[in-house]
């Protein structure tokens, strides 16, 4: 057991989620490792402080009455004809295409790339008067998150989400008046990721897989399912083991990405039903012509 594994095991032990075998290994590691003992001690101190945080001040006596007065004049909304799952999957699936395109092509982004404008919202000029992207500084915490979270493709997704929490509409809205600026910020975030050999390999693999998927689609062996996942077509019977693995890996990652975004989008979908999804579809239709994922490695 190395330090990282020991520290992870210690955290899991706090949730009583550590198997006896790992518990023994952890005990043995801690007996010999002062650094990890220090880690555990510091973590205990922090968690104790967290649990002992001062309680909330009392609720003002008239608080609920004030809220009730507001509720009395607030109408409810009737459930939409849309089910939540449909826009979640449609939007998340669409975002996956956008992200996939960025992964494939971001290494080619030159510094100071001109903003790529999508369809402008109704009533808005095609070229919004945004301040220069160069003037935008990502907060250090977000950069740290990006740097720390790039061990695999999903962790890159998480890192991008961390950026989105700084500029929230970055991921939630693929279209709208902030869209070009958001895209530039998104690219700026990607460019901040240090291209270690490990990450280059991940991106290269991702690139290769997207190309393989495109080839399978072009051959009529797989198609895009309504749920944002790949689906097998009749010709799929003759898929090789490698092609089956490509299919399964791609769907596994898509599903994980969809879950990740769906978890963050749950509240934004009220707007997505009426505004974002139709806009995004138009945007993606235009963008997909510009950035075919099957371009060479």
């Amino acid at each position: 057991m190395n330090h990282e594994e020991a520290q992870e095991a210690y955290s899991r032990s706090l949730d009583d989620a550590l198997e006896p075998r790992l518990r023994e290994q952890l005990r043995a590691h801690l007996a010999d490792c002062e650094d990890c003992r220090e880690f555990c001690k510091g973590l205990k101190q922090a968690l104790n402080a967290l649990r002992e945080m001062p309680g909330a001040p009392p609720v003002p006596p008239d608080f609920l009455e004030r809220v009730a007065a507001k509720i009395a004049v607030t109408p409810q909304v009737k459930p939409s004809r849309w089910r939540w799952g449909i826009p979640v999957l449609a939007f998340a699936s669409a975002m996956f295409v956008v992200l996939g395109g960025y992964y494939v092509s971001y290494r080619n982004f030159p510094a100071g790339l001109p903003i790529t404008h999508g369809s402008a919202p109704e009533g808005q000029p095609a070229t919004p008067s945004f301040k220069s992207v160069a003037a935008i500084e990502l907060p250090a915490a977000a950069l740290k998150d990006i740097q720390a979270a790039v061990k695999d493709i999903l962790r890159i997704e998480e890192a991008l989400y961390a950026v989105a929490s700084v500029k929230p509409t970055l991921i939630f809205r693929g279209a709208g008046e902030d869209s070009p600026l958001e895209r530039e910020l998104y690219r700026a975030a990607l460019k901040k990721i240090e291209l270690t050999e490990e990450i280059k390999e991940i991106l290269s693999d991702r690139h290769a897989r997207l190309a393989a998927v495109e080839a399978l689609k072009a051959a009529g062996r797989v198609g895009e399912g309504y749920n944002g996942l790949l689906t097998l077509l009749p010709k799929a019977a003759s898929l090789s083991d490698t092609q089956k693995k490509t299919f399964n890996d791609e769907n596994r990652d898509r599903e994980a990405v969809m879950k990740l975004y769906a978890s963050q989008l749950s509240r934004k979908l009220g707007k997505a039903e009426n505004i974002v999804v139709p806009e995004l579809r138009r945007e993606l239709a235009a963008a997909s012509g510009k950035k075919p994922v099957s371009s060479g490695r």
Binding site: L43, A46, L47, A49
Partner: peptide
């Protein structure tokens, strides 16, 4: 959840200290 908890605790420890 388990993964995020582990990372969150480690980050909290560092920030708290």
């Amino acid at each position: 959840v388990s993964t995020w908890l582990t990372r969150a605790r480690a980050d909290l420890r560092e920030a708290y200290l």
